[in-house]
Computed example of a mutant assay.
Amino acid sequence: MAQKITKSAKDIVKHALSSVTAISAEDALAQANSPDHVFVDLRDGAEQAKTGIIAGAVASSRGMMEFHIDPESPAHKPEFNLDKTFVFYCASGGRSALAAMVAMDMGLSPVLNMTGGVAAWKKAGGTLT
């Protein structure tokens, strides 16, 4: 008997996008140097290496994010202990919305999802290093 998939990836991303507070790339750009914000790149390492990341961002691939957030994990990244606003982003905004929803479920707060991801960031005049 074949699997019966009841929710599509598109459905799950749509739910995540409606569950997480969004920030436009333009508004995120204005916060890029803010000491109150931590940008988190959820793309995989190959994508990050190919295009670069936002200066100062935490590289945390979607597959490792939960382990990076969890202070009990050997893979924990101390940037997630900071009392700051976390701005999650990926290539276009879908993976980061999923990650942001899970991060909020884990207790990380506040978390924002950058609408349009790296593509919107570049269009708004943002650079990657």
Rank of each mutant, 00 (worst) to 15 (best):
T6P: 06
T6D: 14
S8L: 08
S8I: 09
A9S: 15
A9C: 10
K10T: 13
D11W: 09
D11H: 08
I12Y: 03
V13F: 05
V13W: 07
K14S: 14
K14V: 11
H15C: 11
A16T: 05
A16L: 07
S18H: 14
S18I: 06
S18L: 12
T21I: 14
T21H: 12
A22K: 13
S24T: 13
S24Y: 11
A25Y: 03
D27K: 11
A28W: 03
A30F: 10
Q31N: 13
Q31H: 12
A32N: 10
N33M: 09
S34E: 07
S34A: 10
S34V: 10
P35Y: 10
P35H: 09
D36H: 11
V38K: 05
V38E: 04
V40E: 03
L42G: 02
L42R: 01
R43D: 00
R43V: 00
D44L: 04
A46L: 10
E47T: 00
E47Y: 01
E47D: 14
Q48M: 11
A49K: 11
K50E: 08
G52Q: 03
G52S: 05
G52E: 01
A55Q: 15
A55R: 12
A55M: 09
G56A: 02
V58M: 00
A59T: 09
S61K: 03
R62W: 03
G63M: 05
G63H: 04
G63L: 04
M64I: 12
E66H: 05
E66D: 12
E66F: 02
F67T: 07
F67M: 13
H68C: 04
I69Y: 04
I69N: 01
P71G: 07
E72G: 14
A75P: 04
A75E: 13
K77D: 15
E79H: 12
N81T: 13
N81C: 09
L82R: 15
T85F: 04
T85N: 11
Y89Q: 00
Y89A: 04
C90H: 00
S92C: 08
S92L: 13
G93I: 03
R95A: 02
S96V: 04
S96P: 03
A97D: 05
L98A: 01
A100N: 02
M101R: 15
M106W: 05
L108N: 06
L108W: 09
S109W: 09
P110N: 06
P110H: 09
V111A: 02
N113C: 08
N113R: 06
N113Q: 12
N113G: 06
G116T: 03
G117N: 01
G117Y: 00
V118S: 04
V118D: 01
A119T: 14
A120S: 11
K123I: 05
K123A: 15
A124E: 07
A124G: 09
G125M: 09
G126H: 07
T127D: 08
